[in-house]
Amino acid sequence: MPKPLIKDRQIIDDAWTLVRDAEAGAPAGPAILPLALWKTLRDSRAAADTGVWLAPADDPAELAGAAAELPVIAVDFPQFADGRGYSIGRLLRERYGFAGELRAIGDVLRDQLYPLEQVGFNAFSLREDRDPAKDIAGLHDFSLGYQQTFLRQQPLFRHAR
């Protein structure tokens, strides 16, 4: 049964299979692979069906050369309070020019959706026990902010106040 995914502020069916275990090998069809597995398989698979996920300690610079062709990059949040993925998101978007689907996976909860979206995530695979229909409201916790972020290309002080 397809899992629900919040993408571009809509709830959709997730077409991708997430491969957590690098030893497990990749299934046929669209799959998001761990970084190590993606490195070995990227040339033997259809680019449109091959995504990659980063652990918090992975270096997003490793995807710099592939950012243009990757359809999906996911970033894992083993615990929601582990904030490394927020910097990874901004680097992928702002430094490495990634324009595809940037997805948060793992311990992804309602109260983190707003800042995650600000730093560049546009897709959220919520923790399994959560209800996307309820939690999607978290995207609207704030209507503005002070800083420059991926979504707000100019900090507030560059607008008339």
Binding site: F80, A81, D82, G83, Y86, S87, R90, Q112, Y114, P115, L116, Q118, V119, F142, G145, Y146, Q147, T149, P155, L156, F157
Partner: peptide, 17 residues
């Protein structure tokens, strides 16, 4: 005050070590 505004809800630095 400039730092206060920058640091308030800075989305990238919400969950520091």
């Amino acid at each position: 005050e400039i730092i206060r505004q920058w640091s308030t809800f800075h989305p990238e630095f919400t969950y520091l070590p």
